[in-house]
Simulated scan of single mutants.
Amino acid sequence: MRSLEDEKLAACCNGFLAAIKSLWKDHYSDSKHPIDNYELVDIAVPNKDCGFHMILHAQYWDGRSVSHFNENDMSNICKILTYKWLKYAENDAAWESILNLKI
């Protein structure tokens, strides 16, 4: 797992932040919500299931606080998300044969 102590990751994240701030100034210059002082923050999440944590935090982020998910629920959350991805209307992969399922 990397954190902002990793120079390459920090540089990449700072690049994204600078681009977002620049676009904000270009498109929302009259906004009452300036973001000039926003900084990068490392959000500590468990190393287990970090990809699912990232997806869930992105899906449920309200712009202010980080959602809290119970680690005991992660197994069921993974199953639910996997099912949704497999059953997605535009998923044209032959996932039954890829997974060697007899359905």
Rank of each mutant, 00 (worst) to 15 (best):
M74P: 05
E5K: 09
K84S: 11
G51T: 04
E39S: 03
P46L: 08
A58S: 12
S29Q: 12
N70K: 13
I80E: 15
F16I: 10
A93W: 03
S65W: 09
I80W: 04
D6F: 00
A58W: 04
A10N: 08
V66G: 00
K8S: 06
D36F: 08
A18T: 08
Y88W: 15
L101S: 03
S31K: 07
M54L: 13
I80T: 15
N37C: 07
S22H: 15
C50N: 06
K32V: 05
I103A: 07
W85P: 00
Y38Q: 02
S97E: 14
K87R: 12
K25S: 14
K48A: 14
K84I: 05
N72C: 02
D30L: 07
K102E: 10
D42S: 11
C12G: 00
H68C: 08
S29A: 15
K8R: 11
D30G: 05
S67V: 07
H27M: 10
S97N: 13
E5S: 11
E5F: 01
D42I: 07
S75M: 07
Y28G: 01
H33K: 09
E90N: 13
A89N: 12
C12P: 00
C13I: 02
A11F: 02
V66C: 09
R64K: 13
S97K: 13
L40W: 03
I103W: 10
N70S: 15
V66H: 06
N100K: 10
D92W: 03
L23W: 07
C13K: 01
L4Y: 03
W95V: 08
I55G: 04
N70Y: 07
N37K: 13
D92N: 15
I55N: 03
W95P: 06
L101H: 02
H27N: 14
L86F: 03
F16G: 02
L9Q: 00
S75F: 10
